[in-house]
Each structure stands twice: as structure tokens, then as C-alpha cells.
Design a protein around this nucleic acid. Structure first.
Length: 289
DNA sequence: AGTTGTGTTGAAGA
DNA sequence: ATCTTCAACACAAC
């Protein structure tokens, strides 16, 4: 599931691999992913345009094109952007591209150089919108988005204000609500709260001053570490080479129910909050005991 | 073989 | 207004 670190990894890859490329053609077999435009219209609009840059806000991807247009993408749960080189593909790449999770290809961008970028999307929740670059920030998908948690303008002060405003919400819901903060999803919210040593159901408005600082710092620490490790491939996430990330090797609570806490040896537990699984260590995250 | 869990998001329901 | 549940979709694991 691509959250901020996975999306950042993809953005960095795209800027390395397809910046400057010129789109020669586009193909799609699932028009529902393309919002308010037919594949044929989309194809005509992007043809012969140059890729200027890739950027993101939260988990949302923007690919800016020459001619003032921007391709907005959301990978949702199972979307992968895979960039295949023009020439010979290495054995390792061949192996990864051949994996089943990379085989649900519904959209293809062909570049003049012979490179191609495919959009694989097992569950077909992914979204593609073509928008004038100047209006990209006005998309409803972006307009209601909270501050990106790795943006320099996301300060401790702002974090405190948001907690105060949403004081009744449980922390774990608060962290993953994209309208409040953007970038955090189900994997990292559990990991962040373990790092901070705070139980997930604590209310946003009931945190001690010290705990607020601990959670704030944990957000930056965990997400930056995850970017260094190129994301978490707990299940299907892959980078643009089809390669899994490495953060799943250092997960401390997520999907570790029943296993021993790596710090205190107590069993990791799982609770359902808002119909979703949250993982925590009952000792390390409880300051009373 | 039918049921459940998986998670992002927005919409519908309470 | 605000919170909770469900549907979109596909598949693996029971």
C-alpha cells in the first residue's frame, strides 16, 4: 500500500528515469481509471508532450508536462508505476517485472526513446486525471488535503493546533486522516505510535505536552527512515523497477500480532479501530505502567 | 466453495 | 456537524 515513503520513492525514481522523456503514445484498457476523459482524448492530449518533473503532495502524484498540462495520479491500494528501459532489461529487472503483482497492467505510456511506463493496478482503484498545471492544486482531491507531514511548513505548532481542533479523535485515526494530515496510512500510523510510545486510542486532545513532541518527532523519524529503505513491501508495493522496499524488515508492530516486542518482549497486540487493524505494544506504549 | 481480511478514499447513513 | 460504516474492486487464505 503506497503511503508517503513509497510515493516519495516513486517520485524520486520518476525524476531520475523519465524526466525529459517525450510521450509518444498512450494505451489503456480500463477507462474507469481516467476521470472525465476518454482514453482516446487523453492519448491525444499527452502525445508529444515532454515530462518536466514529478512531484507529490501526501500520497498524490503529479507529473507536469510541457504545454501546461499535468497528469494527476493516485495509486490507491495496489497501483504500481513501472518504468521499463528502452534497451536490454537486466535479469533482475526481468525477474521483478514478471512477478504477478506487476502484471495487472491497465495503462501504458510509451516514450519516444523506447522507454515505457506501465500502470499496474490489481484492484483498479487507481485514478488518472489530466488537469491544467495551474489548476492542479484546485482539484478536489488536493484542495481538502491536510498539510504534507514532511513539508517544512508542518511545524510542531501546527501539529498542536490540529490536535486541539480534533481533540475528540483517537490518535491513530487522526494520523491517517488525509484531510488533517497527508501522507500517513495504516502501516506507518502504528509504527509512528510505537516509536512515540503512545497508545493508539488516546484522544488527540488528551496528550501531555511531552507526548505531543514525541509523536511529532516520531512522524519525521519513521517516514524518513522508510524513505531511506525505499518503502514497505508488506504485500504488493513495488518501486518503478518492480523491486520491493526494505522497511518490512524493520517493522516493529505492524502485522506482528502475537509476536514478541523487540524492545520489551511482551506480545504485540492488534485492535480494530474504525474497521481497520492497529498494532501496538501494551507495555512500550503505556507510560502508566 | 463460500467467507473473510486486506486498505484508500469518498459517499452514504446515523 | 461529526462520526461510523460501506462500496468500489480483486485475490489470497482460510
Amino acid at each position: 500500500m503506497p503511503e508517503l515513503p513509497e510515493v516519495q520513492t516513486i517520485i524520486d525514481d520518476l525524476n531520475k528515469k523519465i524526466k525529459g522523456e517525450i510521450i509518444a503514445d498512450f494505451w489503456s484498457d480500463w477507462k474507469k481509471s481516467l476521470k472525465a476523459i476518454s482514453p482516446e482524448q487523453f492519448r491525444r492530449a499527452v502525445k508529444n508532450k515532454k515530462i518536466l518533473r514529478a512531484r507529490r503532495k501526501g500520497k498524490n502524484i503529479f507529473i507536469d508536462l510541457s504545454g501546461g498540462k499535468t497528469i494527476y495520479l493516485h495509486l490507491k491500494m495496489t497501483g504500481h508505476l513501472l518504468v521499463k528501459p528502452a534497451g536490454k532489461i537486466s535479469d533482475l529487472e526481468k525477474k521483478y517485472f514478471a512477478e504477478k503483482v506487476n502484471q495487472y497492467i491497465h495503462h501504458i505510456f510509451y516514450f519516444r526513446s523506447g522507454k515505457i511506463m506501465t500502470f499496474s493496478d490489481l484492484r483498479k482503484f487507481g485514478k488518472i486525471i489530466l488537469v491544467p498545471t495551474s489548476q492542479a492544486e484546485d482539484l478536489p482531491e488536493i484542495k481538502n488535503l491536510g498539510e504534507d507531514v514532511l513539508s517544512p511548513s508542518f511545524t510542531l505548532e501546527k501539529f498542536k493546533n490540529l490536535l486541539a481542533k480534533k481533540r475528540k479523535l483517537s490518535l491513530v485515526v487522526f494520523l491517517a486522516d488525509q484531510q488533517i494530515l497527508s501522507g500517513i496510512g495504516n502501516i506507518y500510523r502504528s509504527e509512528i505510535l510505537f516509536e512515540a510510545g503512545v497508545l493508539p486510542w488516546r484522544k488527540a486532545g488528551e496528550l501531555e505536552e511531552e507526548e505531543i513532541g514525541d509523536v511529532y518527532r516520531a512522524i519525521g523519524k519513521i517516514l524518513k527512515k522508510a524513505i531511506r529503505l525505499r518503502g514497505t513491501s508488506d504485500s504488493d508495493y513495488r518501486d518503478t523497477s518492480g523491486t520491493p522496499g526494505k522497511f518490512q524488515n524493520v517493522l516493529r508492530v505492524y502485522r506482528r500480532e502475537g509476536e514478541k516486542c523487540l524492545v520489551c518482549k511482551k506480545e504485540i497486540r492488534r485492535v480494530k479501530i474504525g474497521a481497520r487493524s492497529v498494532f501496538y505494544c501494551p507495555r512500550c506504549q503505556n507510560r502508566e505502567s
